[in-house]
Design a protein around this nucleic acid. Structure first.
Lengths: 118, 118
DNA sequence: TGACTATATTCTTTTATGGTTATACAATTA
DNA sequence: TAATTGTATAACCATAAAAGAATATAGTCA
């Protein structure tokens, strides 16, 4: 039997207009690049400035700056200038739980595939 | 104070290898296209064949077929041939709850932005 | 003001992908 | 077997975007 939350989810998906789907797609597109996920991981436990993010991720300066702009515009990170430096931190509280949810799903799927070899 | 689940999530993000990030990015990339979200919405309450999906989404035949292949390879939908027709249905149970979670986040963000005008 | 550092932006190249058209393949029926 | 219907694939074009190099901007200090 389907849980209440599951039925609610289905109901909400039923009424998704093209505009909402576009926003959803845009959100996922931001997360569909390894470099941006690396940047988010670098910010997992607090604010960092651009240089720190560069060294932690190994990405180039222009690259990091561009990705940070995309993440900021998507509302996922918050920008905080401090003198010459600019600190960024994750601002979207649903972001990490969602990534965790997806990872668990991927893990389960691999586990199921593994079972088929036995 | 941070909740337990939040700390667990942070802990798991901390150990994400490039390989895992790549898988995550690939997963999100599949969901980053409006057409594919439309297809998933068309399947929200049960299996449909390709023709039915075409009429519900308004997408072309080749287009739908390609998107369904991508969704299938990503493990999000399951393929079931029935004679000449091929039925597809959502196979990833975390998919709809995750979309719902993101939509609520987007909604909250817009609501907060709206408050700033008052 | 001038020099220096940190970050942002512009430009270019390259690659990836969505959509369409045409074609191929598979299953059913005459 | 031939014809028809449903689905998949191939080839093409157009667009989008990621990465790097060069340049611009902003803040700090001498």
């Amino acid at each position: 039997m389907r849980s209440t939350i599951h039925r609610l989810v289905i109901a909400s998906m039923a009424v998704m207009s093209p505009a909402v789907l576009t926003q959803l797609a845009d959100y996922f597109k931001v997360l569909s690049e390894v470099s941006r996920l690396q940047v988010l991981c670098a910010l997992k436990d607090g604010a960092k400035n651009v240089t720190e993010i560069m060294t932690e991720t190994g990405l180039g300066q222009a690259n990091v700056s561009k990705h940070l702009k995309i993440l900021t515009q998507a509302g996922m990170v918050r920008r905080q200038p401090q003198g010459v430096q600019v600190y960024y931190q994750i601002s979207d509280p649903t972001l990490l739980p969602m990534c965790e949810m997806v990872c668990q799903g991927l893990q389960k799927r691999l586990h199921a595939q593994l079972q088929e070899f036995r």
